[in-house]
Write a protein that binds this DNA or RNA. Sequence first.
DNA 1: TAGTGGTCTAGACCACGCT
DNA 2: GCGTGGTCTAGACCACTAT
Lengths: 240, 240
Amino acid sequence: MEMPRAQPLYRQTKAALMRRMVDGRWRAGDMLPAEPALAAEFGVSQGTVRRALDELAQINLVVRRQGKGTFVAEHTRERALFHFFHLVGDDGKRALPGSRMLSMKAGAATREESRRLKLAAGTRVVRLHRLRMLDGRAAIVERIVLPASLYDGFERLDRASLPNELYKLYQERWGVTVARAAEKLKSALAGPEDAAHLGLRSGAPVLEIDRIAYALDGNPCEWRVSRCDTSAHHYVSEVV
Amino acid sequence: MEMPRAQPLYRQTKAALMRRMVDGRWRAGDMLPAEPALAAEFGVSQGTVRRALDELAQINLVVRRQGKGTFVAEHTRERALFHFFHLVGDDGKRALPGSRMLSMKAGAATREESRRLKLAAGTRVVRLHRLRMLDGRAAIVERIVLPASLYDGFERLDRASLPNELYKLYQERWGVTVARAAEKLKSALAGPEDAAHLGLRSGAPVLEIDRIAYALDGNPCEWRVSRCDTSAHHYVSEVV
DNA sequence: TAGTGGTCTAGACCACGCT
DNA sequence: GCGTGGTCTAGACCACTAT
């Protein structure tokens, strides 16, 4: 007599595998044990392990390479660019963004910040303000808010040496992997400050992208608001 | 001695199944033969058919219902709303759009229209201009361009009786199923005409969504440019 | 009760990457 | 040559839907 199964075996296996990535037992870039080994360990067939791994590959948490093995996904430049960066030049060429950090400060979360990041009121956060370039011209002003508890010592980093791809930094330095993100887009008018940074006149149209990034464990790990000059670029979205 | 296989069996099967939907042998809403029957017909195992059907389900071309069967996907109100309509109220509630058709005219495609819809220059197109309401207020001005050859007799339809969900109409009346779409978003300023329709002042920010919709056969079947008032709504995008 | 898709297994063989 | 993932098969059993 067994209890009715809440989840099929391959989903339980998938969850078990994911847990090992969340708790840091397997880190980004690591190779997983081969399928027969995992099957033996979990007491399921290789087919069941395959299905679990296939679903993990589908959401980009692992990468499968025939002949080599299955690896925990890393935030590479390519992934940041093709997966999490949706601005494309109007000529269809992907613009490679560059960055210039304008400021970095820590402080207590505002009500809005704690709401968006699901933090207790007043929790410490780090705020970044940076300018991003596309094809050498200022095109995006970004305000980024991070829960300080997740990124210990962030505030003491050298502001000028912060890399362009922050997600890679989060992952390498604090083991925080951005697994997915939810974006909200609006059209807005450039304020005087944005206009100055972007070389626009005040009142020019900008695309505002408000993004919450979620870590492997499902909790928010970054709030980012980007205001973009879309006069020579556009945001792409594929609908299936 | 066999030629090296270009595509695995399950992909060939998937393509064969898709062909039957493209050529109208199976129409939207039809139930497909059961898996063992398809397996016998194609001379493959049931597992291979399953894999082909699973991939078709993943891109929303078929719907699988346990105990009932596998069906060719239909454009329902829900699908239009949750899949192809990305504007959401700032309170998080999905706004149900209403529509008012402003004009419908046919004519020869401009250079730009034929480029976007991959038509020979001067091909006949139908142009629609409509206003969409969210929560009872005008919020979107849409310009839609259709290749007239795909939608025979469209121009003779009664403009006022056109339904809100055009994709369902395309599918039911002409067998044209919108399988996927590519959207480009920009921020723009409302011109005098848009402003009048949307009840905004000229120069207010609007979100411009430029969408090419593709039919099952992979060819463009609609070009739509929507200019949206995003003061109380936003466009949502999920990144995985 | 019959028919459908959903899960799970076991095993054969292929394709790829390395050494 | 060996170990990896990728494909394909055959068959058992479960869960859901209809009649």
